[in-house]
């Protein structure tokens, strides 16, 4: 189920502006890769190219190769819709659909795609997804209530349930805890730990403690100045990155001597 992602010579643009330059990296299957770095260095931009969400922004595009299971998702003829069904995404701000109940939010990937599901298999999918997101016990009695009525942390776990309900191979998380309190953050970090049994997870975070807690490998992005493209400086085992990084820039950033 979970797949490795091979990225080769990836350049990412916003119109004429080169935002991230020349990334070559392999993201391991069934593990958590954290991406850290200062604001504006292109970690989120890079993350969004892994399921072709980057090009949703007017004028934005990427050049290079991103291979999932040996298939280049930027090859001509590849439908971004199919890529996104295999590579799910959780956003910075919890974004449940305001017109839908909790149950419908979980089933959104199925329902919005006009697919039919029998009542019993839909119930099963809702329960397994909500259990997968550690939310089942909290909401099982109010599945028909609006998803927007949940707390911020619950909404974010609902979004995770919604993402895993379409059974992707990879899950991308763009600062999933930045809008949450420490307890909700802990709940989601525990969840990430469990989820890596089944998924390849890539998470962008500003919180280095979080990176060290949840990830197996950590990548460090940075920019040399405003208006210059971001680079992937180094990626390695998380423990090594936080204790003995190879690059001086990484060490400076992690030890707080950056900027």
């Amino acid at each position: 189920m979970a797949q490795a992602i091979n990225v080769e010579d990836l350049n990412i643009f916003y119109g004429d502006f080169l935002a991230v330059e020349d990334v070559t990296v392999t993201l391991q299957p069934r593990s958590v890769t954290a991406l850290i770095g200062p604001s504006g260095c292109g970690k989120s931009t890079f993350l969004r190219t892994l399921n072709r969400m980057h090009e949703v922004i007017p004028g934005a595009y990427a050049q290079g190769k991103v291979e999932i299971e040996g298939q280049d998702i930027y090859a001509p003829g590849v439908d971004p819709v199919n890529v996104r069904r295999r590579v799910g995404m959780v956003f910075q701000k919890p974004n449940p659909f305001p017109t839908m109940s909790i149950r419908d939010n979980v089933l959104a990937g199925v329902k919005l795609n006009n697919k039919r599901l029998s009542r019993s298999s839909a119930d099963e999918l809702v329960e397994s997804s909500l259990r997968g997101a550690n939310l089942w016990e909290e909401v099982k009695d109010r599945l028909d209530k609006p998803g927007m009525g949940l707390s911020g942390g619950q909404q974010q776990r609902l979004c995770i349930a919604r993402a895993i309900a379409v059974k992707p191979e990879v899950i991308l998380m763009d600062e999933p805890c930045s809008a949450l309190d420490p307890i909700s953050t802990l709940a989601i970090e525990d969840l990430i730990h469990e989820m890596k049994q089944d998924f390849t997870i890539v998470i962008v975070t500003h919180n280095m403690q979080q990176a060290s807690r949840v990830s197996d490998r950590t990548g460090f992005f940075t920019i040399s100045g405003t208006g210059k493209p971001g680079h992937l400086i180094e990626i390695d085992e998380t423990e090594k990155m936080f204790t003995n990084p190879t690059e001086k820039q990484t060490e400076d950033y992690i030890s707080g001597r950056f900027g």
Binding site: M53, V56, N82, N95, F97, P98, A108, L112
Partner: peptide
């Protein structure tokens, strides 16, 4: 309609036209 809702639908592998019909118009 917030861009996040469109992105949420795109992220689930929903084609653009279905996103417009079922998320943007519905909201």
């Amino acid at each position: 309609v917030p861009m996040e809702l469109r992105e949420a639908a795109f992220g689930l592998g929903v084609p653009k036209w279905l996103t417009i019909v079922k998320v943007v118009l519905r909201t």
